[in-house]
Amino acid sequence: MGDRPLIYGGLCLFVALVTFPVWKGVAAQSSTKGPEVKAVVDKKQCVAPRAYMREAHMELLVAWRDGKVRRQERHYTARDGTVYNVSLTGTCLTQCHGSKEKFCDSCHEYAGVSAPNCWGCHTSPPAEPAKMAAAAAGEMR
């Protein structure tokens, strides 16, 4: 009997936790539009169909990576016959999609996908050296 407030309180807490996305979403006025993908340079055609790229670009990138590094496959022939240079920085980001910030990050941040440290090396351009040097200096022994 006496424990009812406790139980109902707990229940309310549970409901509040479970519906966290609801009130958080309503409070933040989240929209369902999805991320705005900026800066796609004039080209209309990607190296693979858009739907495939949306779902599985990482597969393609991994295949590119292994092919280029380990098997010297430096060129990729798309289904329409176009031949591309295998290079994330050189081809994708420079020729079509502008930059990581403008293109990759918009979706990755939206969906909370942390890229498997691709960005550790392949950024375009490499992150500002001065800023990073300062950061590194702070961390020095």
């Binding site: 989240s30 929209s31 369902t32 739907a51 779902e55 599985a56 597969e59």
Partner: peptide, 25 residues
């Protein structure tokens, strides 16, 4: 099989904020 995460997230946000969208993909 992979899935278009952005589409899934749009659906999920739509559901959570009571403005359901039915995305493709």
């Amino acid at each position: 099989t992979r899935v278009d995460v952005v589409a899934v997230k749009r659906l999920a946000i739509g559901l959570a904020t009571f403005q359901p969208v039915v995305p493709d993909g």
